[in-house]
Design a protein around this nucleic acid. Structure first.
Lengths: 359, 359
DNA sequence: TGGCGTCGTGTTGACGTCAACATGGTGACC
DNA sequence: GGTCACCATGTTGACGTCAACACGACGCCA
């Protein structure tokens, strides 16, 4: 776990080059102080905007700062304060909509708290990769860690640096760490119920990868909703969240004339399903209804506009940050799982099933 | 520009609490050294994995580290070395596809260089906001700065902290700072030419916001391609990159029976245009052809699959990071503008125009 | 057996900042 | 006119780490 920090070349010989030479470091308080003819402490006070400095002195210091191009050294401040005001965030495939929306929300929420976010993308959502990423980040300058969709099952909690505050979202680590997540089950249930309410006899499901906890929860809620009305539970078609996998699943489903309603575990896969249905010449929603999950920005502008379960990414981001910062401040240790409600957005991709041939 | 760094409470009174108490800081080299009965320097050597420590001593130190849960203090290391191995990145609306793809690519490229990325989202792409964000980041722990799509025109270069290496992408700051960008003009030209080659008499354009440099470049190249063949240059319909604005533009265009080909400045707006055309009952590509720009992950799964200009986000990310790190190492000062080539991906949304009524 | 290199480890100081305390000067009040 | 408070500013030390150097013990060779 202990990683060398080498490779940072720093000129040791060149003590004080001429003005204008490219130095490895910028000017320090001491440099400004010398130029302004005051002590470093006075410069520090000016730098922090304290008001117990005589205006004439302040002006002199500000002039010296400007001349030298002084900028405070963050490392020194962080060392002094013991905090970086930075949150680490681990995500997987962050260009995917759900992730990027969450990232944006967390960045935004962190900003309002005066924190910035350091990002790490892991190649796979496996426990090892996430743990390795966490270890890497722990060597970076962070005060806490947000882990988004660390999907693969893990036997235990993460091997994190001690004392590192953590909050997770939508992950297997729920139960081991404080968590904030979407109401996956409620969303899947209402999506399925919406289709049943429209008169569909049953609902097919294009699921996320088997190792993904949210995928499992969504599939389970879908199944439960069907069983609650004694509907037939068709076999699950498994995708990998990508539109391509949804397309593949959609081609299979489009070939089955009995399929009239499809609940997709996310909007990208729903887009693929829609394409497959179009290609097969099956009308949406005339012959087949489709529901997604996430409400990505494009959902409303797919064809037809997609009925979907909207996740409140902004709220999740806010709560993740709030929860983490409470830990950072030593106020929150409970491994609670907060659930953020979802909302079904009914658009044009769902309708009652076609008149039954055998009716 | 100088911002206070307050609000970080740190217990000054409590000197050395009992073991188990929640401390603001973790154990330091000194704590480990005391427990292991060695000097801090020896602990440091073990921590860095140097081999000039007797195995017995090393074991003792490692045991002490484990017992105390030691993790090296990044601030102190950064102060010592003068580097954080962290890149700052400023983006606007980063959940948008182009941005999130770039973010992902930069994060990935940075990782292979042993750097992590600190992210800052700005509310608007205006110069002030970007400058404010840069000032904020300069107080964070970064070695350099990547600015993505700082779109709004600016009279001058950014007011950045002195000595801060910067690289920009697709922005007005091109010319003032080293830049890496997509071949906007080439992409727009080939998109337009593709439609002309199919036999369309002219091509309509749904542009990005007027203040955006890439939007202007794309529009200008579209215009030039039309003028080169003496085609009529229809008025530009301006959007704001969002699918919703594309939808609005599409409704207007769909009402005009003379429109047979539309080049959209990005894929999201193209999705909105497609929806508007579908709603208006105009066949794509039978009556109207549509081309996008970006090749977002969903482009292939829109209906019909969208012909678009693919940006090589991974390559851009790699070059941005490489360029920035060269500056960080003091090897690169030229304000060159690197251009990354694009590729037209022809899919199903483009076809020859319908037979002319007046032919 | 003396000189010398090597190996393991300890000591010192510096990175830049800022809180706490110290100092000296000015003005107010009785 | 002396005491005291206050203000502007300076001095000291500590945050945690690590490079440079110091040092003692041991082994080798002449």
């Amino acid at each position: 776990m202990l990683v060398s920090f080498r490779g940072v070349k720093r000129p040791t010989e060149t003590q004080h080059e001429e003005v204008g030479a490219v130095e490895g470091r910028g000017p320090s308080l001491a440099d400004v102080a010398e130029l302004a003819g005051v002590s470093t402490q006075t410069v520090s006070r000016v730098s922090m905007g304290l008001d117990n400095v005589r205006p004439a002195t302040r002006d002199r210091v500000l002039a010296a700062m400007a001349q030298l191009g002084y900028a405070p050294n963050t490392a020194a401040r962080a060392l002094r304060y013991g905090s970086f005001r930075t949150i680490g965030m681990i995500a997987h495939r962050l260009a995917r909509t759900g992730e990027s929306r969450t990232v944006e929300a967390v960045v935004e929420a962190a900003r309002t708290e005066g924190y910035t976010v350091t990002l790490l993308d892991v190649e796979s959502p496996s426990s090892q990769d996430v743990a390795a990423a966490a270890a890497r980040l722990s060597h970076q300058a962070i005060d806490g860690l947000v882990i988004v969709r660390a999907e693969t099952a893990t036997p235990d909690s993460l091997a994190l640096p001690p004392r590192m505050p953590v909050v997770v979202s939508d992950s297997r680590f729920v139960g081991h760490h404080p968590a904030v997540g979407t109401d996956q089950a409620g969303g899947a249930r209402s999506a399925t119920q919406h289709l049943l309410d429209l008169g569909h006899r049953t609902v097919h499901h294009v699921a996320g990868p088997a190792g993904s906890a949210p995928a499992q929860v969504r599939a389970e809620a879908w199944r439960a909703a069907l069983e609650a009305v004694r509907a037939v539970v068709p076999p699950v078609v498994e995708g990998d969240w990508s539109a391509g996998s949804g397309y593949a699943a959609g081609r299979a489903l489009a070939a089955d004339p009995d399929v009239t309603a499809i609940f997709c575990a996310n909007d990208e896969m729903a887009a693929g399903v829609l394409r497959a249905l179009h290609e097969a010449g099956r009308a949406v929603p005339g012959e087949v209804s489709v529901v997604g999950f996430d409400d990505i920005l494009l959902a409303e502008h797919l064809w037809p506009p997609l009925t979907t379960v909207a996740q409140d990414f902004d709220e999740i981001g806010r709560r993740l940050v709030a929860r983490l910062l409470r830990q950072v401040r030593g106020q929150d240790g409970a491994d609670l799982h907060e659930v953020v409600p979802v909302e079904l957005r009914v658009r044009a991709s769902t309708a009652p099933p076609p008149a039954r041939r055998d009716a």
